[in-house]
Design a binder for these strands. Structure first.
Length: 600
DNA sequence: GCCGTTTTCGGCCCGACTGTTTTCAGTCG
């Protein structure tokens, strides 16, 4: 059992203990151990074998045997005992706003509610008001929250889906099986309903024998998955622990990229592509690109050796790496007189037109990023010091970062105050001196208060290189977020508006109207708009990024990392919000060699 | 339940808000 799975079991135990009403500190210790195991690179099986699991911070004498059992057997008898008391479905209730551990337990013990469906039924029958402490208003809040969760039912964030899909591709590759991402994950949709992989198949091999070789067959590994063959689509469908299926599609060498194009879609783009193909006497089918009048059977032999050009033909002894090169897909575009369109913008009609005209504009690319300007450290709610974040940034190949700890009146976070500012700036300067070739900007993420003023006075903000202004409380419509954001944008010290919509995917809708006005204001004041890449935010969403771009707004793509490992999440915002919106690199401030508004 | 000790027990994340009360428990950031 791998790190992620162990961490997941530990978190499940922690949540169940919390619902049981156990000591909060005990509950938290399970979460801490999970974080520690997940973010480490320990060889768990080795440590378990040597009895050294307590070397892991957060794992003590009580957790050691529990973790060892998970690693060695893939399950936990302790967890099984807990689930006998409280079904795991009760934990789904915790995702609903207004339901915490106490309420979840009450709902389960009083009404037997053990799933979101149960909750839905109880809300509709108004069974909840009348329980101790529950009234009409509580029911309303729960119903609203449940509706938001239901909007994302059966979907997971790209931030969860992409790394899992990539790790499956990597593990298949280790078994000499070549596969590529297709479908929603390849298009980098903000949430996806399935993980689709296209697997390369030799003519003499069957999908089932590949599957056997893959190690994904139940029983072949501890992470056994339910699987079934879907004959209509020629694919295997697996259940995963993520709430979305994994689907393995198969194609031979010559049909690989036509099939990848088909499976990547989206369907309205395939319609357009087909139309262009017909103009050239070609037909796009699920199995390949074929000459008009040709049968599907013929198509199954693949098109590259048939209607393909000489350079589109694979060499006789092509290596997997050669075949996996997406430039072969580009050749398909060429065959129908289109310029290649990156998967993330194939849904955008303006790119179809640009493609037909042979002028697809460049999109901002991960390699364009020169720095990350929204990061937290131990100075507020981050888990690492400034220097550790600098080293992580250097590891990402950046030339600069901005340290932007919270300046907030949220009491739980001890952030940057007027009194602590001197000391904070001093430490940033000290780290800067140790890394002369790398720029460490000083900054804060300052709270926009209820009246639109900022938590720190202007004279403090004036001392910082980067000021991100964000709303952290009363984000919904009654908090009048639009007016507060515009007021913050008008402040000349504010460089960036942080996570403007304030949404949390699947939990909180955030500001749902009026953000056009904020974009107008930002375009006028020159304030950059953040694209926050945290997988549960992905804020600003694509459609509003595209709108801002049309108004001339500049963007800052940021990780909002709270740990060194967190810097890597920046790609989710980049792919899902920036690239899908069709943003070129020059509209992203942190593609510049230095921040334009900082002098000296 | 972990950790780090002033070594075997106390600290660990705290305060505002809210819907429900009729004095406060529970949630949230």
């Amino acid at each position: 059992m791998d790190r992620r799975e162990v961490a997941h079991l530990l978190r499940t135990i922690g949540a169940l203990l919390e619902v049981k009403g156990e000591d909060p500190f005990k509950v938290r210790s399970y979460g801490r151990a999970a974080d520690s195991i997940e973010s480490s690179d320990y060889d768990l099986e080795k440590l378990a074998g040597e009895g050294r699991l307590t070397d892991i911070p957060g794992v003590g004498k009580n957790l050691e045997p529990k973790v060892r059992e998970m690693i060695l057997t893939g399950s936990s008898s302790y967890l099984e005992r807990l689930v006998a008391e409280i079904p795991e479905g009760v934990l789904d209730l915790l995702k609903v706003p207004g339901i915490g551990p106490k309420t979840a337990r009450l709902l389960y013990t009083a009404l037997g509610i053990a799933s979101l469906d149960d909750l839905d039924a109880a809300l509709k029958a108004h069974k909840i008001q009348g329980l101790p402490g529950m009234g009409r208003k509580r029911e309303e809040i729960m119903a609203e929250g449940l509706a938001e969760i239901r909007r994302y039912a059966g979907r997971i964030s790209i931030g969860v889906a992409l790394p899992v899909a990539e790790s499956i591709v990597a593990s298949l590759r280790q078994k000499s099986i070549a596969a590529a991402l297709v479908g929603e994950v390849r298009r980098a949709e903000e949430t996806v309903s399935a993980l689709d992989l296209l697997v390369l198949k030799n003519p003499d091999e069957s999908p089932s024998s590949i599957l056997e070789r893959s190690g994904l067959v139940p029983g072949a590994s501890s992470s056994a998955l339910e699987q079934s063959w879907d004959d209509a689509h020629g694919r295997y469908v697996f259940g995963t622990g993520l709430g979305v299926p994994l689907r393995l599609h198969f194609a031979g060498m010559n049909a690989f990229w036509p099939r990848a194009l088909w499976l990547t879609g989206p369907s309205e783009f395939l319609d357009y592509f087909s139309k262009k193909a017909r103009e050239r006497g070609l037909v796009l089918t699920e199995a390949g690109l074929v000459r008009e009048g040709e049968t599907l059977e013929a198509a199954r032999t693949g098109f590259f050796g048939d209607v393909g050009t000489a350079e589109a033909r694979f060499p006789k002894n092509a290596e997997i790496e050669d075949i996996m090169d997406a430039r072969f897909e580009d050749l398909l575009f060429g065959m129908v007189s289109l310029s290649p369109i990156p998967p993330e913008v194939r849904h955008r009609k303006e790119f179809w037109e640009a493609s037909a005209a042979g002028k697809v504009p460049p999109l901002v690319d991960p390699n364009d990023l020169r720095g990350d300007i929204h990061l937290h450290t131990l100075w507020s709610d981050g888990v690492a010091g400034i220097e550790a974040m600098v080293q992580a940034a250097i590891g990402m190949g950046y030339s600069y970062i901005a340290i932007t700890d919270h300046a907030t009146d949220m009491k739980m976070i001890r952030g940057i105050t007027h009194e602590r500012l001197d000391e904070y700036l001093r430490e940033i300067r000290q780290v800067q001196e140790k890394y002369p070739g790398f720029r460490v900007y000083s900054g804060v993420e300052v709270d926009i208060l209820r009246d639109g003023r900022l938590y720190l006075p202007d004279e403090d903000l004036a001392r910082l290189d980067v000021v991100i202004a964000s709303i952290h409380h009363e984000i919904d419509s009654k908090g009048d977020g639009v007016r507060r954001l515009i007021k913050a944008a008008m402040n000349p010290h504010v460089d960036v508006l942080g996570h403007p919509a304030g949404r949390l995917i699947g939990r909180r809708a955030g500001i749902v109207s009026g953000l056009e006005e904020v974009l107008e204001a930002a375009a006028t004041t020159g304030t950059a708009i953040e694209i926050n890449s945290s997988p549960d935010r992905l804020d600003l969403p694509e459609n509003l990024v595209a709108l801002g771009y049309s108004k001339g707004v500049r963007f800052a793509v940021c990780s909002d990392a709270h740990s060194p490992g967190g810097l890597g999440t920046i790609r989710y915002g980049l792919l899902t919000c920036a690239r899908r919106a069709g943003i070129p690199p020059e509209y992203v401030v942190n593609t510049k060699p230095a921040l334009p508004w900082v002098t000296g």
